[in-house]
Amino acid sequence: MKRKYELVYIVSPEATDAQVTDLHTQVDQIAQRLGGTIEKTDNWGRRKLAYEIGPHKEGTYVLETIDGGGELMKEIDRRLKVSDLVIRHLIVRTDEEQSVVDRTRSRRTENVRRRRVARGLPPDRQPGEGQRADVDDDRDDRFDMPEGLDR
């Protein structure tokens, strides 16, 4: 059962770069052992935490996109819980949400095309034509955050 997960973990700010990469290789090894792969790794670097976690005020964030099964994620979860260097982690399954997003997106473009054809226009927006429509959009009373706030 292949699923897509996103794993974000916050490494203690005291950890050296070598320790951060070491954690990554550990996760990678677990993934390989249990038949998964790491698709992407993204180190966000050191960030200030929104609130203090224990003694820490900042941490190094690492995001990994993992392809694998539930058992694998359970094992990674367990390992990260035990690890002293990782102060917080979050695992989110993304494939289902992503497929919903893709579906709504494709349905929308389909609808737009169908309606355009019904109006006797070519299915795709022509260059130059879109600009007028954009101006139209702006004139409409759209969601406006600051005004909504102060009411």
């Binding site: 995001l63 949400e97 992503q98 997003v101 929308r108 009373d141 759209r142 969601f143 909504g148």
Partner: peptide, 19 residues
């Protein structure tokens, strides 16, 4: 009063991501 419109519907943001 300005009519309020859902920002995500208006801007066609499908993916509300925690990041």
């Amino acid at each position: 009063r300005r009519r309020k419109v859902c920002k995500f519907c208006a801007d066609k943001i499908d993916d509300i991501n925690y990041k």
